[in-house]
Nucleic acid binder design. Structure first.
Lengths: 210, 210
DNA sequence: AGTTTTGTACCGACCGGTTGGTACAGATGA
DNA sequence: TCATCTGTACCAACCGGTCGGTACAAAACT
């Protein structure tokens, strides 16, 4: 696990230390939440000493912000963008691709962990205003991505003129988050499959009503 | 605040003490979550001593179960049943009434707290199996109520035969939970209004397609 | 009747493990 | 040598839970 320096010494890179902390913390926070994730566990799992941790991070809260950074960029770059990047792609197909991608992610995780961003939103929104505003802006960006796609779909006539992209985007994000939560509490991926099925069906209604 | 015994002694009723603890704990857990709610805060807010607390409850976990009991019965008796109790009522009207009721609850709370059951589900599903199964059964009961209503609606021809009550019920619960979460993180009731609007619109599609 | 016992309700000091955070000396590498 | 990086020992606050003891009313006993 430990990265070795060129001359084979014990010490790490500094950069890789920070990354080892981040990786361990992200795993633990995903399952245990922010407050319930204990620094010592992060340290044990990453093999980093305490003094070393506080060399790289000012406090647990700063670690939280770093995790949030990582989560946000990872979500945008590795989940959102791959689906919506192509400006020539059919917007509705992109949305369906995105829904499937999220569903498969939950299946692979065997319904454990849920949505990292959704979990943090539920845990911290009313407790930590700083985290809340950052989380709110991620969800806003997410909705915006869908809104843009839906506007494109409406302009190109893929969905009817009666569709309201903003409302529909909000609805899709909410439904996905809720579906992930239900599947996490019931530990049954079928719940989410049904929800995603209904979402696609709803989208299809808008296609038929064009 | 303190109930007096008939002869004016200092001591409380025992029953009312337990209820004072439960009330304070429910408020605090709703906002801070289970793990992040500290026993001393519950004690301070309810004016109960520590020894007394442990006279009424075996542990914090037992308090958690009692809160869950209270939450579940309160949700079923005060939110779910009032909408669906009347077997002669029109099922779709009942569902719409329910959606509005949940929306108004969030508005009254100014988007603070979110859904008590949803919060606990997010916080505890992967950490405490005992709580998880209980929460899962509440959500199952909730979905079941909607499923029954939707079956009735289909039999009576209010919605088309193509509707799949189980999937639709899952979807409605998920969408509501997600909408509550989004409104809580964005502190903007408009998000939830739009989501509820879309849910009603979806329901209306099923009506039109009968 | 009056006295002793018993059970319920309650208090707050205290205990010990946990947790976020600090101090500091030593190692490493440019 | 100097800045960077790391491990170890330590601290104070926190928090769930325990303990010894009090208050008092209803039984039980005499």
């Amino acid at each position: 696990m430990k990265a070795q320096t060129t001359n084979g010494s014990r010490t790490r890179d500094g950069r890789s230390t920070r990354e080892a902390i981040l990786a361990a913390a992200q795993r633990l926070i995903h399952v245990h939440g922010y407050n319930h994730t204990v620094l010592d566990d992060v340290l044990r799992e990453s093999g980093v000493g305490k003094g070393n941790f506080y060399y790289h991070f000012k406090s647990k809260e700063e670690l939280g912000h770093a995790i949030l950074d990582q989560l946000v960029t990872s979500f945008i770059e590795r989940t959102l963008e791959p689906c919506f990047a192509d400006p020539a792609g059919r917007p509705l197909a992109q949305i369906r691709c995105f829904l499937d991608r999220v569903l498969e992610a939950q299946r692979e995780r065997h319904c454990v962990g849920g949505c990292p961003l959704g979990n943090l939103a539920a845990e911290l929104s009313d407790v930590h205003e700083g985290f809340r505003t950052r989380l709110a802006s991620v969800f806003a960006a997410w909705r915006e991505r869908l809104t843009v796609a839906l506007h494109r779909a409406r302009r190109s006539g893929d969905i009817g003129a009666a569709a309201r992209p903003e409302a529909l985007a909000d609805f899709l994000v909410a439904s996905l988050e809720g579906a992930i939560l239900l599947t996490k509490v019931s530990k049954d991926i079928a719940v989410m499959e049904q929800c995603v099925g209904e979402m696609k069906h709803y989208l299809a209604q808008y296609e038929a009503g064009r």
